[in-house]
Design a binder for these strands. Structure first.
Lengths: 207, 207
DNA sequence: ACCTGAACACCGTTCAAGT
DNA sequence: ACCTGAACACCGTTCAAGT
């Protein structure tokens, strides 16, 4: 049985292939999917479909799915960096600003749990990450280091190596965020713990 | 073309179906695979094959793959609990023992990175976890709480709520472990950071 | 009660081919 | 340069059927 020939050749949308920036559109779509349904729901087929493009089109712009996930992670670190910086600045670059940074960090994780998990879930293989000075991961971390150095100069924090102090503090906020993400702490409990941690750290890290 | 009938009916190994405890064997095999090749390498087909059993046999004993992963996580918490307890006891249940617990925690994570990730990767959905008093997760956490209470009685730690203190300390060691797992810290750097954290926490949490 | 085997609806990835 | 479409080698899961 001959299937009826469509009157029009069922042409795709007018665009040659796709609008301007397919790689960026794919990244956006991936972030959206992860945020909405979790990382397991992210399939290249879905991304392609949602963008009106073949499911193999992605390979023109990313090496593979891993590479897409790495881009998602990088995007997360970029957003996180901006949030931290904003908290630090609007908080007055002092003690209050630093506390606000901690809260902002935990809030980012709680607000974007799946995205946060991609950033730290081992999806991004180490690789040459350390080489690239524009890598948003270290770049976000640097915001923390800078804030510590500034407080050291203001006599608010003891004069240990800033890198070591930054790692310590990062471990605390990351740990709190993880407890919240695993449902061991509610968002409210995480907030309380963050405040408690802030107090105790002030004592432990005083000059 | 008739395919040649085998002289013997190609019978399986003598056992009726399998040796004694198939669920436990599956769990062991899953842990081994994850430890060796990562969680992505874990497939139900491989587990079945390795155990000389159909790839759907697992469904007799676990609801699905998620349930197997949950069992892997639980097994990890059981092992972790024993390690922590051992460090605490052999360290003399005091200040030294508590420091040893921290080191043991980080070492567990570094020695079993993939397994550790399953324990905290969100693979185990919250569910009714909180109800079960034998859940090895809370049980491992309890070791930490107990150690803190004992030190409070000995006048080594300030008299804040033990639960809050435990969460704080847990966040620190977990954060350090994560930094190590992500390759941001080497195992050696993680050790150094753990020591630094210990010192600062002693100050911050002193009575 | 416990396991099998075929089937189903999915995956990520490759590659020749189109424009 | 950019994308398609068919094909490949995998998945987790279901279900009737076997012992």
């Amino acid at each position: 049985m001959p299937k009826p020939r469509p009157t029009k050749p069922a042409r795709k949308p007018a665009n040659r292939y796709h609008h301007g920036d397919l790689p960026h559109a794919m990244l956006q779509e991936a972030v959206r999917t992860i945020q909405k349904d979790g990382v397991d729901a992210l399939t290249l087929r879905c991304v392609g479909e949602r963008l009106g493009v073949s499911r193999t089109a992605l390979y023109r712009h990313f090496a593979d799915k891993q590479a897409l996930l790495a881009a998602v992670a990088a995007e997360g670190f970029r957003t996180l960096r901006i949030s931290l910086l904003a908290a630090w600045e609007t908080g007055g670059r002092g003690r209050a600003g630093f506390d606000a940074m901690g809260v902002a960090y935990v809030q980012f994780a709680v607000a974007h749990p799946s995205h946060y998990r991609v950033m730290f879930g081992g999806a991004v293989r180490p690789g040459n990450r350390h080489q690239d000075p524009n890598d948003p991961g270290p770049s976000a971390f640097q915001v923390l280091v800078d804030a510590i150095v500034e407080q050291q100069r203001a006599g608010l924090i003891r004069d240990d190596a800033a890198l070591q102090l930054a790692r310590f503090i990062w471990a605390v906020v990351h740990g709190i965020a993880m407890l919240a993400l695993d449902g061991i702490l509610s968002a409210a409990e995480a907030g309380t713990l963050a405040k408690f941690a802030n107090e105790r750290m002030r004592t432990g890290l005083a000059p």
